Simulated assay, not measured.
Amino acid sequence: MSTSGPLGEFLRSRRALVRPSDVGLPTGPGLRRIPGLRREELATLAGVSFDYYTRLEQGRERRPGRAVLHSLARALQLTADDQRHLMRLAALASDPPAANAPAPTTVVRPGIDVLLARLSPAPAYVLNRVSDMVAANPEGLALFHGIGSWPRERRNTVRYIFTHPPARTLFVDWEATARASVAQLRAMNAHCPTDPPLLAVVAELEAADPLFRRLWADHAVGPRRHARKAFNHPDLGAVAYDFETLHLPDDGLRISVYTAPVSGE
């Protein structure tokens, strides 16, 4: 991670995505050295000084006001998820936690195990904030074909998507699944972007797969909520599910439940 910190890195990544023409600016003659906005262009659009914005992006200004953040969000055309992420990173920059975040949860409460059992035959599993699969019913474990043979401490769904070769054909739209998994990983750790358990997973997967490395560098963020996912499953054949994600904030966990699509949708 650069010395600019998570807030500066996020701002720089989003600045690179906005073309001058997107915000009504002329591109000017000749080639631009960067694909997106220059710092001075973004500062002008947001109504802040070039020096102030530079210090913010470089990590030398750590207490931006909400008005400044909202102006930057508008200038950068941030999504609602991106805006929330920006606010979290700014809060961390101005008031860093005194200690590391609690370790990712690895054991679920007995009541959650009971819930998973009662959800059968709908596939369901529980992930912690770094996407370790800490519990699952038999159908949920079987959905990620082969992960059940992994040691429990290695059953991480992002690791599975990027390092388990059969995953590339298991998910009909593997690339969309991969992108969503990385965005979710970042979203779930917005409150602790430099926490060692997160960085250990990131370092492993950056070394293992160039696409993960590019996606992580893009700073995409998006908490998983609900969607439809199609599989070419070795045992189930071609199958599609709707899934819902239920968050348990007190436990730092989320439950994913898969159901058959409602006919007529």
Rank of each mutant, 00 (worst) to 15 (best):
N232D: 15
R154Y: 13
A220D: 15
A230R: 14
A135W: 10
G140H: 04
A103P: 01
R63H: 15
S21I: 11
V108I: 14
A180L: 00
V239P: 01
F50Q: 08
G59K: 00
R74I: 04
D95V: 06
H85L: 04
R55I: 10
P64L: 11
L119C: 02
G222V: 00
G252I: 00
P249E: 09
P193A: 10
D51A: 06
L17P: 02
P121V: 06
D195K: 00
P104G: 04
S4W: 11
P29F: 13
R129S: 12
R168C: 04
R155D: 13
V68E: 05
R118K: 11
A122Y: 14
A90P: 04
P96Q: 04
D235V: 06
R109C: 01
T3K: 02
H226F: 09
V262P: 04
V48A: 01
A217N: 09
G148W: 03
G148D: 12
P20I: 07
R213H: 12
V134A: 06
A260K: 09
E61H: 02
P123H: 11
R66Q: 15
R118Q: 15
Y125Q: 06
R15Y: 10
L236P: 00
P197R: 03
A183T: 02
A67H: 11
L185T: 02
G65P: 12
L127T: 01
G65A: 11
R33F: 14
A46W: 01
G8T: 13
A46G: 05
R88M: 13
A180E: 15
R159D: 10
L92I: 13
T79A: 10
R39P: 11
M1L: 14
I147A: 09
A176F: 00
L116E: 07
T105G: 08
A93R: 02
F171L: 11
W150S: 10
T194Q: 12
T54Q: 02
L92V: 08
F171I: 07
P166M: 01
L116Q: 03
W216S: 13
T259G: 01
G24S: 09
S2M: 10
V130E: 13
T245S: 13
L143R: 03
E41G: 08
S49F: 06
R152E: 15
Y52F: 12
A240P: 08
F171N: 08
A75V: 13
P20H: 06
L42T: 15
H145Q: 12
S71F: 02
D235W: 10
